[in-house]
Design a protein around this nucleic acid. Structure first.
Lengths: 196, 196
DNA sequence: ATGCATTTTTATACATGTATAGAAACTAGC
DNA sequence: GCTAGTTTCTATACATGTATAAAAATGCAT
């Protein structure tokens, strides 16, 4: 795990292969499979460690603000973790070390007056939004790094202004409009719409 | 494209490999690369065709209801497309054939009183939520099909009731609580929070 | 028809995750 | 110290996406 972490931090998650990690610890790739089920589990364990070591921010008392703050902390935590993206789609709970976030969110939602069922719904909806936002941004960044042409360019190039007036209107500014961080805006909207 | 579509529909997206597709059309894997940049582009083209052929549902006039309806139609469209999941994270626009959805959403948002910038934000936030929801559900299904133990089980097994009272409280019912479709609830919340 | 340039296809190769089979190292009981 | 069983590791193999280089096919001007 330490070796894996070192490789990731020094050279990026892209170069962490099973063979590379094996070489790093003086073993063979398949030997690693005695300790982890597959590569995803390895990354999950790393994520877990990472999450467990995160500082837990002070949260406001007011329930709605509390949910927003917890969600934004969760978002920030995952954003700062380059290998999280490959694991995120795994489930609706991130990892053991990161249970702190759902616990706070569900709790605050209940305190805001939601039933337990509603609170779980609220958490999962917030989580899906979070995962989607991070996944999208990570994919975009990766694409940019690899120099691949964004799909968007092609889309906007052959845009029919008759059929899609609104999109044509913003086509030129899309890039500019979409680099801004709108995560907070989204969570706030969700909290506004989900909590009484 | 037709061959790829046939393979996917008959045997699932999992068996569509470049070599298999090549065999299907009596060629070699690398020959395909003259027509598509990579496998992702192939899937994107398929998705595009699929999206272009979708029926465009009648939408309510009232702007907020219109956004909700368009979003739900978009969600349903993507859900019904098994190979969409592998492409979705690509960007914040799905594909040319699916531009109908963002166009309606942005337009309705503007008609509801948002500025163009705000409308684009709203669309992207809804899109991220949609992508996250579908990605998560697809991952869960795949995991179930492969018989892999869900990460969640392990998480809940070693849950400390002292530290995570709320989560412990729902641990046993998590499965039951999370099979329900809460997408609509989420979009409604977003629309409620984003549109004036 | 012929020679050249461009398009399209093949052959081969590599890195990757991981399955399988078996070897080696270790542990417990005597 | 020896044996049987278990844990851990190694060797090899395969399917996959795709890079690279070369071959073949095609189109075009003469």
């Amino acid at each position: 795990m330490a070796a894996a972490l070192r490789v990731i931090e020094e050279e990026g998650v892209g170069v962490l292969t099973m063979r590379r990690l094996a070489r790093e610890v003086g073993s063979t790739a398949m030997a690693l499979y005695h300790h982890v089920r597959d590569k995803e589990e390895l990354l999950l364990l790393l994520l877990d460690d990472y999450a467990a070591g995160l500082p837990r921010p002070e949260l406001p008392e007011e329930p709605r603000e509390r949910v927003v703050a917890a969600a934004m902390a969760m978002h920030e935590a995952v954003s700062g973790c380059p290998w999280a993206v490959d694991v995120l789609r795994a489930d609706d709970l991130m990892s053991v070390g990161a249970l702190w976030y759902p616990e706070r969110i569900v709790d605050a939602a209940v305190r805001a007056g939601l039933t337990m069922e509603e609170a779980v719904d609220a958490y999962r909806i917030i989580w899906h939004y979070t995962a989607g936002e991070i996944g999208g941004r990570a994919a975009a960044r990766r694409r940019r790094e690899e120099g691949r042409p964004t799909h968007r360019e092609r889309v906007f190039a052959e845009l029919d202004a008759e059929e899609f007036p609104r999109l044509s209107q913003v086509a030129a500014r899309w890039e500019e409009l979409t680099v801004r961080d709108t995560y907070g805006k989204g969570v706030r909207a969700l909290v506004h719409g989900l909590l009484p």
